[in-house]
Design a protein around this nucleic acid. Structure first.
Lengths: 236, 236
DNA sequence: GGCGACATGACGCCAATATGACACGACTGT
DNA sequence: ACAGTCGTGTCATATTGGCGTCATGTCGCC
């Protein structure tokens, strides 16, 4: 979920330390001690980001970085360089050779994590932020905003995600279990009845404009969002 | 505050002249003599605009322009092409390859500055020096001044930039991370919680006139600046 | 009419946010 | 150079509000 990271570092002690920290932060971590090993892992499992030591036995980190950038199949992998040298020139060289960021030793675990997180966020494609509108109900995920007709509607994040899921899958019936997977996430443990409560809160928020009618209860199965049937007489 | 510009020009004399002019106009200026150098600087410090000579040693300016447009991370950078040729065909090619504007030598400093300002305003509203006013709150970036109603408000630079960013992107929710990228810069390392503190300081400064209400916190997501509700009505 | 499923209202926990205080570095003026 | 000030980032603590749960009320179906 959080992404996978390949750590390329020849000193086993540092490598393990980095791996432990990254794992604790929720990343899937792979390790390599030199460039050939790293290249094998890159081909094999396509990490999202490579954390690369400047100094490596044999092929230097920079060369590896350029090679990653040069290959069509790997050019989208983020690269963060680690270096013991603090000289500014190195930083420029690093960024020039295609690294996304550059961290100078010594660094705190927190700093490293923050930079990695930032790099990953920048690379991540925009997640379906498109505005959806059905029967006069408009949801703008980017702005975190819902409007019914001209009226703005306040929603908490859970209700907003629920509504968004419904509006992007109109007409279909979803079980509570399925909704929990889709809206809450796959690994969370929540009572199924909780869905009821959020459906109610969502309906309450939509009630002033009558849009609560769009959420239908399908007894014995779950809930459904009414597809657009012509938005004629909702204001009444 | 006015924005940063990367000048890519091989002739040192012209480069220095341009840099001097732009600096005097209040921009932060970086210089590069060729494309590799330029690419390094782009990655490192993400200029808002690239002023690009058509003719460069090695890789031509147009190729660089296309490359900038192709990369997800740099496609939002504005590009202004400089050319000695006056032919109309060139202009078309330039604009087709993704340039935002095209200036033919010889040009006056005033013309160049005007075009740059226009381009920046189009692509990145928060970088222009234009006065923004929302719900009685006025910010004048050029004068570094904020007024609420007719009352002047003192702000430190960080809070002012934060407010300016908000006011040029009203209605949208921004995560702390995104705000750090936009207001602080991409490669700075600051705690995310620091954003809270600056939000608080900003709110404190705006509180006397009640304008602190315009900054909404969206729990679990970030902050949002309330858009001007002038057009919205309650016809339901 | 009885049973099972859904709706509703109230409540408490705890993570996320707000706040206050402090530390540090960059300027400024002497 | 030096002390003092100002702006800024960080930490510790207080506070809040969203969300999950439960108990109870209501409805629909056989």
């Amino acid at each position: 979920m959080a992404g996978s990271i390949l750590v390329v570092e020849d000193e086993a002690a540092i490598r393990d330390l980095l791996a432990a920290n990254l794992q604790r932060a929720g990343y899937r971590v792979m390790c390599a001690g030199d460039v050939p090993q790293a290249e094998a892992l890159v081909r094999e499992s396509r990490p999202d980001l490579v954390l690369l030591d400047w100094v490596l036995p044999g092929v230097p980190g920079l060369t590896f970085a350029r090679r990653l950038r040069g290959d069509q199949r790997t050019k989208d992998i983020s690269i963060v360089l680690l270096s013991g040298r603090a000289e500014e020139q190195d930083k420029v060289t690093a960024l020039e050779s295609g690294a996304d960021d550059y961290v100078t030793k010594p660094f705190s675990a927190r700093e490293l994590l923050a930079r990695i997180k930032a790099v990953m966020r920048r690379r991540a494609p925009q997640l379906a932020d498109d505005v959806v509108e059905i029967s006069g109900l408009r949801i703008d995920p980017a702005a975190h905003q819902v409007t019914a007709g001209d009226k703005a509607i306040d929603l908490w994040t859970t209700e907003l995600r629920l509504l968004h899921f419904f509006m992007t899958h109109p007409g279909r019936v979803f079980s509570r279990a399925r909704l929990l997977d889709e809206v809450w996430g796959e690994h969370v443990f929540v009572e199924e009845r909780t869905v009821d409560v959020h459906i109610r809160r969502l309906r309450q928020a939509l009630a002033p404009t009558g849009h609560d009618k769009l959420i239908e209860t399908v007894r014995g199965t779950g809930y459904r969002f009414k597809p657009d049937l012509g938005a004629a007489n909702l204001a009444a």
